[in-house]
Design a binder for these strands. Structure first.
Lengths: 207, 207
DNA sequence: CCTACCGATCGGTAGG
DNA sequence: CCTACCGATCGGTAGG
């Protein structure tokens, strides 16, 4: 049965939530321990009963709120009878997760810029076991339907599909006419599955 | 003929270079005006003869060193007889530009996180004229070779190809065996051009 | 372009 | 978990 969290654990969670919200909005060095304490509803000194330093707070936020918690299930839980359907389903989930969250990847950006990816190695160690499962999942789902492409490239390119849609949406959303955004994801998935080019066999000879 | 830059212009350039190097390594709020002054070889007070504020320095760095200065020529100057060859050539240029520069996109990340994309609109205004040229370029190069995909999606997905390769390389480079990185770009381009799936016409009926 | 300075705020801690 | 405090550093400026 569920343990009700102790007072201390509740406070710790409030600190993490407050710190996360401020970090993704202002960056690490742009956020002060006083701001975190205020938003968490405690005094500055109280922070240090839960975390040894500001960097320690970031580390806990980074592992607790890292996007992989939402992105990996998106990949492994997608359903469908063909690979085409599975990717479509994953793309739909992707849009749901990301809808109205323009700061979804900010924690990653902060880690890359302000921490020079200092925590990336630990993250990879945590994810390795899952990685194996994902590779097997891909092999099973895509069997016989894919062109000969190594499974790790399939994983990486699917994550890339996600990143490329999300980031270009950030860039183009501001300045493009709305009709440019409509169905953009459909086109991205279509290119990913079937390619940009016409089938060469279908091309008329040009000479 | 070339004007030799005045003393003041030389100092200004030294400040921008110093500020750029520090910003991409430490972020905006992680970099102090004193650090910038020291690296540029002047005293703190001297900075304010060239820039009104720290934010003013960042703005100038952002527009002077934005990756589009290198990415857009990569697209428009790529050569080849077929669209396949043009994309291959663009990918090759992409690797050249990015080789050994893991902080190539950091300015963009800083702008997104620490400035909430405050300068993005101005950037788009600056790029609009070029955008039209790129759309025409794509239409010309890809005529008759592409499946029916709107030109703006082609531009966006190609930028996405670049982003997806670059960022997943940042992530996977640390933890993956070296053979996983070999030829990864070739696979990315291959998927982009021809898709992940086998041609359905080539599939044996499964029932 | 430098020296010397301003008030404000930073991360962190002692003591209770 | 709070109050009150520490030394250090911040962005910026006056005056020359």
């Amino acid at each position: 049965m569920e343990e009700s969290p102790s007072r201390g654990e509740q406070t710790r969670k409030a600190i993490l939530q407050a710190a996360h919200d401020l970090f993704v909005q202002q960056g690490y060095h742009g956020t002060s321990m006083r701001q975190i304490a205020q938003r968490a509803g405690i005094a500055l000194g109280g922070l240090y009963n839960h975390f040894a330093s500001k960097e320690d707070v970031f580390q806990a936020v980074f592992f607790t709120y890292h996007p992989y918690h939402e992105v990996l299930p998106m990949i492994t839980e997608s359903q469908g009878n063909t690979l085409d359907e599975v990717v479509q389903d994953a793309a739909r989930r992707m849009l749901e997760v990301v809808e109205g969250r323009p700061d979804f990847l900010n924690l990653m950006f902060i880690e890359v810029v302000e921490f020079k990816s200092a925590h990336a190695q630990q993250l990879m160690v945590d994810l390795l076991p899952r990685g194996v499962g994902i590779l097997q999942h891909i092999s099973r789902v895509g069997e016989g339907q894919m062109r000969p492409i190594p499974p790790h490239i399939v994983v990486r390119s699917f994550l890339g599909l996600f990143l490329s849609y999300y980031i270009t949406d950030l860039v183009f959303a501001q300045a493009s006419p709305p009709e440019f955004r409509q169905n953009a994801m459909q086109y991205f998935v279509d290119i990913y599955l079937h390619g940009l080019l016409k089938d060469p066999a279908a091309l008329p000879d040009s000479k």
